[in-house]
Nucleic acid binder design. Sequence first.
DNA 1: AGTCTGGTATAAGTTCCACTCATGCTCGAC
DNA 2: GTCGAGCATGAGTGGAACTTATACCAGACT
Lengths: 312, 312
Amino acid sequence: MLDVRRMRVLREVALRGSFSAAADSLSFTQSAISQQIAALEREAGVVLVERSARGVRLTEAGEAVVRHADVILARLAEAEAELEAIAGLRGGRLRMAAFESAGASIMPLAIAAFRERHPGVELSMIQEEDDEAVAALRAGDLDLALIEGAHGRPQTPEGIELVHLLDDPMYLALPQDHPLASRSRIRLRDLADEAWIGGGLDSSCACNRLRARACEAAGFEPRVAFESDDWTAIQGLVAAGVGVSLIAELGTTAVRDDIVIRDLGNQVDDRRVYVAVPAGGYRSPAQTEMVEILQEVSRAYGARRQPLALAS
Amino acid sequence: MLDVRRMRVLREVALRGSFSAAADSLSFTQSAISQQIAALEREAGVVLVERSARGVRLTEAGEAVVRHADVILARLAEAEAELEAIAGLRGGRLRMAAFESAGASIMPLAIAAFRERHPGVELSMIQEEDDEAVAALRAGDLDLALIEGAHGRPQTPEGIELVHLLDDPMYLALPQDHPLASRSRIRLRDLADEAWIGGGLDSSCACNRLRARACEAAGFEPRVAFESDDWTAIQGLVAAGVGVSLIAELGTTAVRDDIVIRDLGNQVDDRRVYVAVPAGGYRSPAQTEMVEILQEVSRAYGARRQPLALAS
DNA sequence: AGTCTGGTATAAGTTCCACTCATGCTCGAC
DNA sequence: GTCGAGCATGAGTGGAACTTATACCAGACT
């Protein structure tokens, strides 16, 4: 097979018109050029250069090789440029996933910040709950995912690395005209007879485990009247009086007028939010940068958490 | 700059899924692969492969490199195929020139024979007289040319190599109703008072030098009444009674009905026909082959030279 | 938990390639 | 004829690349 380095030498010879001139231009000795061309001709099995006392001239075969060399070397330069773009965050892509409420809250902020700093990187995000996201990360179909977990135990999945972003407090959502809506402080056990809205225990959504744990601590088992994992649907169901629900703060980016949100204090554990990347030590520049930005955004998000906490 | 051999290794790694498998497939040791990839990553300045206990997976940068490697290696294979085609006379080109009468006689035969044997080679021919053809050969704009010379002296031009093809006898062309047309044997000196048609002495066409030499030997200086180097024009002028002319046998592929062609025996030297290629030892496969075929065709052409010689 | 297996990394040694240096050779120009 | 520009070639050296041997790591199986 033809050696590309030697093809480059031939190209320089063609350009300069002699071995000696090519040698000068490439900072080699004339001898090296002569040997390289001889070796290339051996590889090619054809004479590529017609030697004469006054420099050299390419044969038809030599011209063919140079023609291909031009294309190949250009492509090589392109490859290098692309690598440099990826390394310098001026190119490449980052495929992300987030669970619903994160996709509507901190992810848009992070994406905006990332795009501002590195407009060349192609960002994409899909909505995907924890289990699917983890599987996609493992399969290499995703580069980064936001996932949630119940308070306390990080329960890191196999082959995945988690970085904690923030603790997301769980609030109570009531219909506006609910008797407890006007109370200044609500005890969970007062809700023992209520119908609840949310996912089943087998749902991957951590909120359901948090609800179960909290109710158990309050001494009752909640009756789930309707199963849904979609915050906007849940708000609608609460407003319609189907039941009450726990709702994470990240899910309250838009709250309907006809429901009220109440803080339950430490009666319910926080949901924990993590960013997950494939384990294994290596992180792409884009991954590293996005984890960083997510941490920034999360800090800022936690810092301005006031209104609801006071409204409890 | 990225090393293409290493890119090929990376491609194999991507294809096989592990360093070990790639090593087997490329007949190297696993160690060599590991070192090559490490070196490639050093060149690239980016991690290209995510290592794990269960084989490896490419990073985004690695995938980019493989993408480029595919193109480059394909192009390399193309280059090799093209070289092989040129060497095997299944490709390439041959740019030729011939003087007028050769372009109408032996060249078409040679071209037909060449194309039959090597249909892949792109043949081209232009009409060009000796001096221009030699210059084009030297400049590399032509690969091969037919040129003519007066009898005897080969007068090889600088930087050109000549191969003799055939000796082309010169005949006399007379108007059909010329008094000498019916004579069985014509002596040149009987034509001392005729008007002659042909080129001047400064014309590159050898016929004119041959005419001058022959007439001088016959004891007179021919009066050139009209200058032309074009055989069909000359035939027309002879037919119209403007004068008489010498005409080479190669120029008699088509003879008008209203003129007669007569053999002058050894009163006029033969024109010599050569094939010329650039000197310097190297000849492309196509050049070598075409010289060979021209020799064949010329031999065959000389062998069937009978009709006019007998008609003298 | 221990071991086995399939994988990668790395140190050391060897072979081979590519380059330099020195020299010879060719051919065209003055 | 001599000179100069240019290519070829032999000898020697340094470095790259491959092999061998070994360490190491993680998952799978017992």
